[in-house]
Amino acid sequence: MNDLPVREPIQKRSIEKKTKIVKAGLDLFCEKGFYKTNTVEIAKAAGVSTGTVYSYFKNKTDIYIASFEYFLDSYLRPLLEELETLPKPVDTQVLIDNCLNLFINLYVNSKQTVNELGLMQESEPEIMQHFAAYEDMILSALVKAFDNPNVTKKNLTEKMYLLYALSDILGQEHAFSYHGNIDLDVLRCQITAMITHLFAEEL
């Protein structure tokens, strides 16, 4: 535990050091799990001193949160940036396809990483609360980016949340095949049809 105030890096070299710590933490957390990883190991893997780690992070939990936020940002930020640059009004089908593809790629390419994050959210309230707030931020950004005069703004946040949640479910099924009797192509078509209908109607 670090009782000293942490600093936010401004200079390029400091930013690179912090990023190395975040990446090293992510690799170790995914390899060994949160409880079997310590800050000394993270510092060594990042090529910095333990004191340097504590100049940027209060404790191991802070490193964990920063590491997995960095991981999620690598998938979610490009989606938000793409939506912001798409011609307005944003096409509903493009939004749905992009969300579904994003979560499929996220789960299929990073099974171990999303598994580790899921386990820690169940066992550590601080981590769960942080990533619940993180999801709220992403959801708000999606709603803001989805500028379409043909779609009612009424209950748009709730509709976007359903798209987010169903995309997550589809991604999990692609990666882990929890239900062997589910046809993933059919499931995708049904999700698309349902969300398209929701965006088109007044509730």
Results as ranks from 00 to 15, higher is better:
L76C: 04
R77D: 15
P78F: 13
P78T: 05
P78H: 06
L79D: 14
L79R: 14
L79Y: 15
E82R: 02
E82Q: 05
L83Q: 11
L83R: 00
L83D: 05
E84M: 11
E84G: 08
T85E: 02
T85P: 09
L86T: 08
P87E: 01
K88P: 03
K88Y: 04
V90K: 07
V90P: 07
D91V: 11
D91P: 10
T92Y: 08
Q93C: 05
Q93L: 09
V94S: 03
V94L: 00
V94Y: 01
V94D: 00
L95D: 01
I96T: 01
D97N: 04
D97H: 08
N98C: 06
N98K: 13
N98T: 04
C99E: 06
C99G: 06
L100K: 04
N101C: 09
L102K: 00
F103S: 00
F103G: 06
F103L: 00
F103D: 02
N105F: 08
L106A: 04
Y107K: 01
Y107W: 08
Y107I: 01
Y107L: 08
V108Y: 06
V108D: 06
N109Y: 02
N109D: 12
N109M: 15
N109I: 02
S110D: 13
S110I: 06
K111P: 05
K111Y: 14
K111M: 05
K111H: 04
K111D: 10
K111C: 12
Q112T: 09
T113H: 15
T113A: 15
T113Q: 15
V114W: 02
V114E: 00
N115C: 09
E116I: 12
E116K: 12
E116R: 07
E116D: 12
L117I: 14
G118E: 04
G118V: 15
G118M: 03
G118C: 14
